[in-house]
Design a protein around this nucleic acid. Sequence first.
DNA 1: AATGAATGAGTGTTCATTCAT
DNA 2: AATGAATGAACACTCATTCAT
Lengths: 196, 196, 196, 196
Amino acid sequence: MAGSSQSLTRSPRPDNRRELLLDAAARLFSDEGFHAASMRDIAKAAGMLSGSIYYHFESKEELLLAIYEEGARRLAEAVENAIARETDPWARLEAACAAHLGGLIAHRDYARVMIQTPPDAGGSVESRIRDLRRRYEARFRALIEALPAPGDIDRRYLRMLLFGALNWSPVWFRPERDSPETVAKQFIAMLRRSLN
Amino acid sequence: MAGSSQSLTRSPRPDNRRELLLDAAARLFSDEGFHAASMRDIAKAAGMLSGSIYYHFESKEELLLAIYEEGARRLAEAVENAIARETDPWARLEAACAAHLGGLIAHRDYARVMIQTPPDAGGSVESRIRDLRRRYEARFRALIEALPAPGDIDRRYLRMLLFGALNWSPVWFRPERDSPETVAKQFIAMLRRSLN
Amino acid sequence: MAGSSQSLTRSPRPDNRRELLLDAAARLFSDEGFHAASMRDIAKAAGMLSGSIYYHFESKEELLLAIYEEGARRLAEAVENAIARETDPWARLEAACAAHLGGLIAHRDYARVMIQTPPDAGGSVESRIRDLRRRYEARFRALIEALPAPGDIDRRYLRMLLFGALNWSPVWFRPERDSPETVAKQFIAMLRRSLN
Amino acid sequence: MAGSSQSLTRSPRPDNRRELLLDAAARLFSDEGFHAASMRDIAKAAGMLSGSIYYHFESKEELLLAIYEEGARRLAEAVENAIARETDPWARLEAACAAHLGGLIAHRDYARVMIQTPPDAGGSVESRIRDLRRRYEARFRALIEALPAPGDIDRRYLRMLLFGALNWSPVWFRPERDSPETVAKQFIAMLRRSLN
DNA sequence: AATGAATGAGTGTTCATTCAT
DNA sequence: AATGAATGAACACTCATTCAT
């Protein structure tokens, strides 16, 4: 009785400490890089001491992995929702690009961690991160495969051109200047013509 | 006989220690990142002790800057030579791209350090690095400005598309599979059509 | 029995780690000088590792400052108590000198750090140390100002004579040979006559 | 023939490099302390590289010893000349004090190194430094012993009072404000009265 | 008489991590 | 769920010193 009433009155927020920590880490990882951001700084930004992080995460690398997972989940969800509304292959690709770019604004820190983290970083969680990356990119790969009529253009280089541009966008994208839809429309417009 | 010939070919370390150090640092910075690569590791890779580095470079950041400078110098030289041979704006841009991609193969570590180093990293040498980056990118900016007939495509997004693809290329470019000339030709072909 | 008494006397390190560290640092700073004493040595003398110091003190200089503060606090307290018991200006000055010399015995290491640390040492904590020094010396300055009848003697040089002797005393003072009261009485006797 | 003519034309300055080095070291030792002053800094201040010092001095400690010796020599010479002109014991002591204080101005860096160097610093040259110090102080000890009529004042404390004041004088002595003769006259005036 | 280049131990400090409480 | 306190290895960097030239 006492126990149940206690569990009802206490802690109005279930596990928001983990989220807080994730947000703080995402910001520091994306701003300063994985190695330059210290557990102390992350803890301080989340309002706790560095040792306390280890109640929520086993290690710094697991923290990175969790951010990567969360970032991939959010971006994938946005892309999924966007392409579900379109049927034309080019429209689907453009919607995916717009959703990806939109995700960079909405989830800036998580997205930048995803993109900046080199494929060989992360030590013990390296393979799991590579998996997430591959799975996320697979969506775009499929969307490009679904395009009609390659013509004399190698589909692979088309993919690399688009991938590169999307992944590099955090460097130059400014929400106050660029809109995800406009950028996506322009990118697709340039490439679309090359396949007709 | 052996003695005299030896005295001619002697001097096992004339003045190439600085270069050796630069090469080792470039490899480690590009493989593991600036912060993850330690001065001890760099020194060991160059066959000396960590303290000895400081005879040649004032700090780790100065080492990074030196690599950046050398990388920018080599890539710029390659690009300069390439575009000097062409007059047509599109041909010049394609030659520049091929030279840039070729430089990624010839000077892989230096080039990757240049590209991976985020614009806000580097502490005290940050501004000098940003300068080098800007100067190198200015070449491509000029080449794109020189293109005829923008049409309904925003030149800025064309530049971002190409920049992104070029800068991302170290991630996917494999010399045994991709040739700089082929990639450049395909990239330019895709974009050229969009402006006619 | 043994168990319960043990649980009462337990806690081998309650919160005296900071004090322990301060004592160790004071001894090493006073014996070898600020620069010659290493954080590793200080830590070892306090029974911990060098990194552990930084949980208690932000830097070596903050450690110096803390010692200086503690030393100044103890000496000032002793002097304050001593002069409070006297009303005659000369008796007050003599009591202050005796208390100062007595403090050199009771808090030898702290006092020697105070006196040996040159006014221009200490880097970032320099100004705070200078402040402490000035405040401590102000007591003696005031006591000397309160003396009657300067005569043809410049009060400033009287102060310098006494200051110098007091500050130099750690060099020659030996508790087994000199008593604070005797030394103070002799010093004051010599100077008192010069003002009548 | 070639040799002798060479030795005549070359090097118009016989061994001024050693002096230059000594001056530079004295300044740095006195300004920053023995441990804080590095051989690199000393060398740079003397216009050479750190390794070159070792042609002139066997070690950093030998450099310290040399400065101490030179300082003691200069001060002793000044004191000797000064007391030779006086016959009255008090006049001789006052002349010695004035000469000592005058030496602090004329040979500021050397004198400060002498006074600031704690008796236990210097490692292998420690005993030789202690010797020099003792020998210098012996002069003053003898001058005080030569004073007439101790009265009820312990001669030892008179010596400590004067020694302390003289040794502490670098802390407060400012040539633009204090003259060696005035300070010496005032100091001696205060003490003289106490022995009559 | 001095240099260029290096050494290896040492500096103060920070790191991710642990663990009893 | 988090803290206070510590660990031990690592960090970038500096040190006095050496030595072939």
